[in-house]
Nucleic acid binder design. Structure first.
Lengths: 205, 205
DNA sequence: GTCTATAGCTGGATAGAC
DNA sequence: GTCTATCCAGCTATAGAC
């Protein structure tokens, strides 16, 4: 029933995510979030008991989409297909959820001081499961014996860089805004490199 | 002969670099820098006119080491050797200058609001030169026709991640601190992947 | 549920003694 | 060149009218 409550909370979280991504937690003023959301500042505090509580809510909202890409590692049985889909999904996230990625990157870079123990465990569990899956393919002789952990780090880093460090990418490519073709080119190169590195043959499409 | 002046400035910049890397600019208190450096806060302001001026000094001190890795792209004529050395150098920087890397990453992630136009140009020029160099190898048929810009982004991202997101790496590897073998494993995997992706044969050593 | 006005504190910056 | 004491801006957070 509290449809207005939910709607406002969502609006505030969404706006806060943009500002936190842009400025970082400490540099963000609650008044700026309020202004961008078109609300008086006190309204923020009516819905969230503190700036930090709001930030935690943003972190929560951000983790689900970021973890969804992992599903491709499980749903596809063929290594080439799985890696290919995974990289594509990660690049899509960098494009469609750049703010979420930045908020998360910021949090991680500073040692995840606001991340709940539950979320830490969840992330670790997801990573470990993906690593185990890749190790399985290696053990079955279906791909070259790469270190699965470092393979994941490379995939994470090279896909997320298109969100987290988009400013640098735009500087160097000379773009005002990254376009579909840029993300496609990135996905292509990363996929190509990873598949060759793992010595698996690409799937069509 | 202001040897004491220089010594103190260096100490303050070095300490500030650590704290800025750990907390980010806005979350850093000058009192914390002072405490860690074993100085009263007013001393900081005797040497630097503001927190922001100190931060800019840190940024300045950080850029040189980060750019040095680029030299390998020019000094080596053979693509395989150059890329190999470049990746190794970048990984070494992630290990030896992790704080510098984090300060810089933070700055870039938020759109480089404190970076001087000179430094922006310098970074862009270095990047463009490296890209041109790689494009030259492609044109000469000495490596596969990869997109040189995206190749650089991948190398940057996957090497810097070992500094910027070391917390995550440690979480997943279960290490308390990354050791030589971790950086070696990373360098090996990244090099392997890049060389295969570029279709150049590795050099010995 | 909304908003104005303001309290209260944190932290950047400085005056001025040594 | 060093340091203590303090000032004051700007921010988070809230009281209280509507």
């Amino acid at each position: 029933m509290p449809t207005i409550r939910e709607r406002n909370k969502r609006l505030i979280i969404k706006t806060a995510c943009q500002v936190f991504a842009d400025k970082g937690f400490a540099a963000t003023k609650t008044s700026e979030i309020a202004d961008k959301a078109g609300l008086p500042k006190a309204n923020i505090y009516y819905y969230f008991k503190s700036k930090e509580a709001l930030y935690r809510a943003v972190l929560d909202s951000v983790i689900e989409p970021l973890l969804q890409a992992n599903s491709h590692i499980y749903e596809q049985d063929e290594p080439a297909r799985a890696l290919q889909d995974y990289i594509r999904a990660k690049i899509r996230i960098s494009r469609e959820h750049a703010d979420a990625s930045k908020v998360f990157a910021n949090e991680i870079m500073h040692g995840a001081p606001h991340l709940s123990p539950q979320h830490r465990e969840q992330l670790k569990a997801e990573a470990n499961a993906s690593v185990a899956r890749i190790q399985g393919w290696v053990d079955d002789g279906r791909m070259a014996p790469v270190d699965p952990q470092h393979l994941m780090f490379v995939i994470w880093a090279s896909t997320q860089t298109y969100a987290d460090f988009d400013w640098q990418i735009m500087q160097i490519t000379g773009r005002k805004k990254l376009a579909a073709q840029d993300y496609d080119a990135a996905a292509k190169l990363i996929t190509d490199m990873v598949l060759k590195g793992c010595e698996v043959v690409p799937c069509e499409a």
